[in-house]
């Protein structure tokens, strides 16, 4: 089995050929990027507004749960059957549009719910202080709530990306490209090395993207929020140990 796999991936054409891994990766990334891009543009502003005003939280929760309950394959097939006859001329759009809709619906819940939750979770005292010092509503949102909500927003985006990358494989099921192609084609031609290559490629892609976003997160989120303090005496948790802090307090008083 390992040998079969090795001999499959040691063929250069399986990598660089017109239907090789790289071409499939390119397609996979394209489908995923379009969907995640649309989700970000829709879900983050909406989430920020709902979180800030507190209005519509119940509606957002309901929408998020409802979208989660939709079976991706079923919806995809439904949309293909519904939409593709309208685009008889252009072969890619008739499948790309349904795929994009499904992936967007799939990724909106976690981004939206986490954005709302992130803003709602901001320390009410910090919000109160911000208002009390004369910040306008949008200043409170962008100077206090958004920076503090970033860790949760990022984790929502990360799980959305993970899910989109994994689910974009089903695009192959409706005769689009992407890494799922390797799995579906491998299945029908009984080439298991091809199936496994496709699966591993998807997993690796998901991990690489997750690490990339984690890096972005590291440089965008304030260390005060993430709890990564450079100074001694500070631990990985957000709150320093109580006794430490009190000792430090006593030191300062003595100065």
């Amino acid at each position: 089995m390992i040998n079969d796999l090795w001999s499959y991936i040691s063929v250069a054409d399986h990598w660089w050929g017109p239907n090789g891994i790289m071409a499939r990766l390119d397609e996979h990334l394209r489908y995923s990027a379009i969907a995640v891009g649309i989700s970000l543009v829709l879900a983050i502003p909406l989430g920020l507004v709902v979180g800030h005003t507190g209005r519509g939280t119940a509606v957002v929760t309901f929408i998020a749960n409802a979208f989660r309950a939709l079976p991706a394959v079923g919806l995809l097939i439904f949309l293909v059957v519904l939409i593709s006859p309208q685009f008889t001329g252009r072969s890619e759009a008739r499948y790309l549009i349904p795929t994009t809709i499904v992936l967007v619906l799939l990724s909106i819940p976690s981004i939206l719910a986490n954005t709302v939750e992130g803003v709602r979770n901001v320390d009410p005292e910090a919000r109160d202080a911000a208002r009390g010092m004369g910040m306008t509503g949008s200043q409170v949102l962008f100077k206090v709530e958004l920076p503090c909500a970033l860790p949760l927003i990022f984790s929502g985006v990360r799980s959305a990306v993970l899910q989109v990358i994994a689910t974009a494989t089903i695009a192959a099921y409706i005769s689009l490209g992407g890494l799922g192609r390797l799995i579906i084609d491998g299945l029908s031609s009984r080439e298991y090395p091809k199936v496994i290559t496709g699966a591993v490629a998807v997993a690796v892609l998901a991990i690489v993207l997750d690490v990339l976003i984690a890096l972005i997160q590291r440089y965008t989120v304030s260390r005060g929020v993430s709890g990564r303090f450079s100074r001694k005496g500070a631990t990985a948790t957000t709150a320093p140990r109580k006794d430490d802090a009190i000792e430090a307090d006593a030191e300062v008083l003595a100065v």
Binding site: A126, D128, A129, A130, G132, V225
Partner: peptide, 13 residues
């Protein structure tokens, strides 16, 4: 304006 738990902004030094 000073409040009970200070309400400092956690993301700012």
């Amino acid at each position: 304006y000073v409040i009970q738990h200070a309400g400092l902004f956690p993301h700012r030094t």
